[in-house]
Amino acid sequence: MSDILRDLFPLVWSGMITGCLYALGALGLVMIFKCSRVVNFSHGNVAGFAAFLIYGFSSGVLLELSWGAAVLLTIIAIIAIAFLSYAVVSPLVFESDLTATIATLGIGLIAQGATLLIFGADIVSLDLPVPRFSTAVLGLRITGYDLTVLAVAVVTIGALFFVIDFTKLGIAFRAISENPFAAEVCGLNLRSVHLFAWIVAAILGVVGALLIVPTTFLSVTTVAAFMLQAFAAAVIGGFASLPGALVGGILVGVLMNLFTFYVSPEYSSTFLLGLIMLALNIFPNGILARVEGFRV
């Protein structure tokens, strides 16, 4: 019993914390997918680029700003990138969602190359100005970082759901996700809603990247690799459901933690593969709404 308390609870707790970050990433993917049926494979690379921009703006590599100003400037840059990306992808969205999805891979490659070109392949460290303390609750060590992540995730996700539920744009977003054709007939502008989703997703990506980097370090691949767990989270959550992405993120965080601790740290990607295949097959209807009704 005490063994379980000693191992399991901390594992679940830290899994939940990283899970919140996966959820942030997954929510961005789901936002875009829900309204336009495009999987944004550039998500991770663009978010990684954003993390490097913050580093560049605050460390003197590009500029020497305060942390807050660097974040603000980065968010502006990222919104511009989201705008550009959507401008490139948008003509394809209405033709074939799979072609548009492939195009996002191209954007991801460019973001990856740009990061390499500007910042090089070296590892840098990017810290987060968080309160440094830790307390023990029931044998659980809770740090200032944990609480920051939790607070930021709750506020961000809360704000997101508020926007989607109560603002005009959010309602349009829901309408278009339900039935794009009917929504367009009703005079809703598909493109502006798509753009809204791309921009929100990009900001969520920046927030997620900012919060994940302190746990490791920053290199060209770290954030992209982190976003892959976000993919798993989105898939497990159903890819078309925002609450699903949240649950999926936390589930992936906790399960990965348990797997690496109890089974093997070497096979975590294989475990993720198994998890994705299992999720896609056990809940094919929840995940694959389009499999059911076809017409001839």
């Binding site: 999987v39 799979l98 898939v235 890819f239 294989t270 994705i276 295949m277 896609l280 097959n281 499999v291």
Partner: peptide, 23 residues
């Protein structure tokens, strides 16, 4: 196992496949 998946769902599961390879 992925016979009922299509489009982006299949693409994402192949992504997972690719990730597991080097490991």
């Amino acid at each position: 196992p992925s016979r009922r998946l299509s489009g982006i769902y299949l693409a994402v599961s192949t992504l997972a496949l690719a990730l597991a390879v080097p490991e």
